[in-house]
Structure formats: C-alpha cells, structure tokens
Design a protein around this nucleic acid. Structure first.
Lengths: 147, 147
DNA sequence: CTAAATGCAAACTCTTTGCAGATCC
DNA sequence: GGATCTGCAAAGAGTTTGCATTTAG
C-alpha cells in the first residue's frame, strides 16, 4: 500500500519556524491514533481530559497542521462538524454509509482520472479533489438481505 | 441540454401531503431566481426583507425541499455555511475557484462513471455522489498569465 | 374546525478571538 | 529575554427549537 514513513512532527514544525510544544504533540498523537475522520471536538475531548491542551489550542493546532500539509479537513456529507485526518499522500476519497455512519477511505485511480479529465478538457487547474460518496456499505447491504 | 420542465411547487407539495403557503412559495421563488449556490442566510435576507417569511421558516422550508428532492444542499470547499441550489436532474459536480470564488457547475458523464465503478467493484450502493473540485478557473489562469 | 405551519426569540453547536500569563528557543 | 504559544472565557457564525398564534384545507 503506502510506505508509512512516520512524520517527524518536531522536525516539520521547527523547519517551518514554529515551536514544538506539548499541545501540538498531543494533538498530533491523538490524530494519528484516531481511526481517521475525527471531529475537532472528539480530539479536544480526549486531549483536554488528559490535561494536554485546551479546546482553543486544538482548533489552532489543527489549522496549523493543515497549513503545513500534515492534516486534512473535510466536511463529509451533510455533517455539521468538520472531520480531520492525517494528510495521506495518496489520492483517495470517502465512502460514507448513510446507514451505519461508517466512513471508508478508498484509494484508487479515480481521483487522478478526474484530475486528468479536468486539466485536459476544461483548462481548470486542479488543486484539490474532494469526492464524497454517500450510500449503503456492503456490510449493511448484507444485513438488510439477511433481515 | 436539459428540458427545463418547470417544477410545479404547489402540486409537489400537495401530492406529498404538505400545505401550500406563502413562505414556501417565496423561498422557492428566491431559490429559483438565485444564481444557484446561495446560502440559507442569503435567501433568508431576501425573503425576510420582503416580509414573506421568517428566517426559521426559510431553514424549515429548505429542509422540506431537500426531503422532497426539490433542492440540494452542499458544503462547498471549506466554506462555513451550507449552500443551496435547485435540484438538478443531471448528475453534475462543482468547480470552485480558489482565486475568484466562482462556483461552476459541470455536467458530464464523470459522476455516473464514478457511480458505475463503485457499484461494480465495491458493492457499495451509491445514493449520492458529491464531487467538489477546488482549483483555479480558466479566467483566473488567463489573468495571471497576462499580469 | 383543526392539524399544520409560522413568527419570534431563545437555545444550541461548532469554531474563533482577545488578552493576560506561561513557555520555548 | 522576547516573541510565540497557551488557557480561559467570552463572542461569533450558522442553524435549530419551543411555544403561542395564525392559517390552509
């Protein structure tokens, strides 16, 4: 799949002129350990409970990580809160199950094909492709069939 | 392109067991006249100024329209507020220009191809595909080149 | 007439901000 | 030591809700 070269947060921060602090490390750790697609509030709850950072710092830190290209924010489906994940080098998209709420990553050539299509035909300089597919996942389909 | 068979709001409401009211008509008219991709607040401002509906009714009405399949909500890019548009029978996606903020519709086979791909390979029952591409539109690219 | 819809205002959720004090380099 | 970062608490968007009143059918 992907060579999961671990990101050296300290190094990345310093080289961009930012300081290495407890809250930043804590948010990064929490984000990495999360299953992906966590809300800022979920991270905040965890990190705050451990007394490692305040809610405000969580938001500020996430914004910083996004700026540094370490994290990615997306608003999946019609959800109210934004969801965060560690920036993944691969092009991927999200499959959101409308039944169980499960969010799946899908890595594939689809996104880059979309990219090519637009660059070629439409003279649109693509910066970011966000593809969110809502539907019913395989597991829920099976459950329905069984029921 | 599309046969723009005008939607008979009154009929649609009544046949679904809902009442035809002033606020609903007003919101529908405003949404249809809008360039598309308006926020609820923009609609609200317009409709409230004309004394045709309250803000709360605008939100309630939009939710109803969505339920009836008359309108579509989407959160484009990292925007804070949801944007609304009249539901379009064609599969389409959005091109958001990061420079001028312009939002373009693009109708094409791309979305249905995504759909087919997922139905076939991944046993995912697709309900809705939301594709948002952020980048620089042709006009802004030209401007840059000239400058 | 009566269930459904509205207006008003207040509540709620998610996120951002101002500022005094703590912290990293 | 001094700019950067933090915590706290308060404000800010956007959206929803409770309830008395109005209105469509």
């Amino acid at each position: 799949m992907t060579t999961d070269e671990p990101v050296d947060l300290d190094e990345r921060l310093r080289s961009a002129g930012y300081r290495v602090t407890g809250p930043r490390r804590a948010v990064w750790t929490a984000l990495c350990q999360a299953s992906g697609h966590v809300t800022a509030e979920q991270l905040s709850a965890q990190v705050t409970a451990a007394g490692q950072a305040d809610q405000a710092s969580v938001y500020r830190t996430l914004a910083l990580f996004e700026e540094l290209g370490l994290a990615r924010q997306s608003r999946l489906g019609d959800a109210d809160a934004a969801r965060w994940e560690v920036a993944h080098p691969d092009e991927h998209f999200h499959l959101v199950c409308a039944n169980c709420g499960d969010i799946d990553h899908h890595v594939g050539s689809l996104v880059s094909r979309i990219r090519d299509h637009l660059e070629g035909d439409h003279r649109f300089e693509v910066r970011d492709v966000e593809l969110v597919v809502t539907g019913i996942c395989a597991r829920c389909r099976d459950d329905e069939a069984t029921a």
